[in-house]
Computed example of a mutant assay.
Amino acid sequence: MTPRDVSGDNSRWSDLDRPPLNAAALRRALVREGGLWSGVEVVQSTGSTNSDLVALAGEGKATEGAVLVAEEQSAGRGRLDRQWTAPARSGLFFSVLLTPSEVPVARWGWLPLLTGVAVATGLSRAAGVDTALKWPNDLLVTVGGAERKTGGILAERAGDDGVVVGVGINVTLREDELPVPQAGSLALAGAVSTDRDPLLRGVLRSLEQWYEKWRSVEGDPARSGLQETYAAGCATLGRVVRAELPGERSLVGEAVAIDGDGRLVIATEDGVQAPVGAGDIVHLRPA
Rank of each mutant, 00 (worst) to 15 (best):
A274G: 03
I281L: 07
P275H: 09
D270M: 12
G271E: 10
A274V: 13
A278D: 11
G253T: 06
A278F: 10
E269D: 14
T268F: 14
E269P: 05
A274Y: 11
V252S: 11
A255F: 08
D261T: 10
G262C: 06
D259M: 01
G260C: 04
R263D: 14
R263G: 11
G260Y: 01
R263S: 12
D259F: 00
L264P: 00
T268P: 09
D261Y: 11
A274W: 12
E269M: 11
V282P: 00
E269H: 10
D261R: 12
D261L: 12
T268H: 14
D261K: 11
D280K: 15
I266H: 02
A267K: 14
G271S: 09
A255L: 07
G277K: 12
A267M: 09
T268E: 15
G260I: 03
L264R: 00
D259R: 00
A257M: 04
A257Y: 04
G260W: 01
I281K: 03
E269C: 08
L264Q: 00
G260A: 06
Q273L: 03
D259E: 05
R263H: 14
A267C: 10
G271L: 11
G277R: 13
R263F: 10
I258P: 00
G277Q: 13
I266M: 05
A255Y: 07
I258V: 10
V252L: 11
A267V: 04
I266G: 01
V265W: 05
L264V: 01
D259G: 01
G260L: 08
E269W: 09
D270Q: 13
G253V: 02
D270Y: 11
I266Y: 02
G279W: 03
I258L: 06
V252H: 08
G253P: 05
V272L: 13
V282I: 10
L264W: 01
G260S: 06
I266V: 15
E254Q: 11
G271R: 09
G260P: 01
R263K: 14
A267R: 15
L264A: 00
D280V: 15
V272G: 09
D280L: 15
A255I: 04
G271D: 09
G260Q: 01
G277M: 13
G277D: 15
E254N: 04
G253H: 07
D261S: 13
V276W: 07
D259T: 01
I281E: 01
D280E: 15
D270S: 14
V252K: 12
V282W: 04
Q273A: 03
D259N: 07
A267T: 10
A257D: 13
R263P: 10
T268G: 14
I266T: 06
G279R: 10
A257L: 02
T268N: 15
